[in-house]
Design a binder for these strands. Structure first.
Lengths: 161, 161
DNA sequence: GGTGAAAGCACCGAGTT
DNA sequence: AACTCGGTGCTTTCACC
């Protein structure tokens, strides 16, 4: 888990790829005044180092009829059940991410559903897992994703300062 | 925001691209026993319809020294300040996503930081925003992302049933 | 660690069925 | 809507710096 050394060029390559993984390496090369081969080698190295773990499509879930987002906090009967419950949670496809947390809840997850009825169904599934004592739901009325470029820039500035 | 009609072929194309946006269309074509041109046309249509909104790199933030994740619930003095505070929140690069919510909190966000010290700093920034009455933090000890393919499959099964 | 050129493919539009 | 096909341009490798 050691920090990996990224130089200015790596950073600029990531910056151009982060919001469009299909940006041609030739375009990147032109902009950075290096050869396309170099871009290729550097991307490959970042992949091998595990910095770049993959590339994923961004889909508009609203257009697919899945506009409902909620966060569900989960209280367990005993913390020793954490792993078991986490495994059960991850079997539910409508749970997009789950966390083991400190604070109020033992577990915490984000769900994506069609509508309130569907969400109710998912939450009932969560409630029904053995060891779950109680759940608490927060419904998202509006989601605003932050720019990944901004975070990258901060991480990079931090590295080089 | 109407549902878009995706057939089995579209679904299979998305399925192959969702975890690797650089999968060659010729590979997809071979697997689906259609021509690469058809794959191209269908992807383009899904882009035009706004189903596919983009593609993004997945990075290992732990390897970049940003292993700390927390969720912060925000109580406002007045709900009329929601938009103002949301805008301020989105200026902080370490906030990766923010939501307007019902339930306990008025706003809810996810932060990514280097360590507890850094997180403290980010949370103090949130606390300092005009109109924020109080915040409540849940620290993630472990994050487990769910497979996007599984959600896609469920969405698709639902569409065709 | 970078280059530039060359070979191999992929992309993508035009024309056809 | 889907296919084929060809021009264009991207990727990837390799000998060399």
């Amino acid at each position: 888990m050691a920090k990996f050394k990224l130089d200015d060029t790596d950073h600029k390559i990531l910056d151009m790829l982060i919001d469009n993984t299909r940006t041609p390496f030739t375009d990147i090369a032109k902009k950075l005044l290096i050869s396309a081969g170099t871009v290729h080698v550097r991307v490959k190295k970042m992949e091998e180092a595990g910095i770049i773990t993959g590339s994923s499509l961004s889909l508009d879930y609203k257009k697919l009829g899945y506009a409902f987002i909620a966060y569900v906090g989960i209280y367990l009967e005993k913390t020793s059940q954490t792993q078991f419950v986490l495994n059960r949670i991850n079997e539910i496809p409508y749970v997009t991410v789950a966390h083991v947390t400190t604070g109020k809840f033992n577990l915490f997850c984000k769900i994506r559903a069609k509508d309130t009825d569907h969400a109710k169904n998912v939450i009932f599934q969560l409630d029904d897992i053995d060891g779950v004592y109680r759940t608490e739901t927060m419904i998202s009325l509006e989601e605003s994703l932050n720019d990944k470029k901004r975070l990258m820039k901060s991480i990079f500035d931090e590295m080089t300062s």
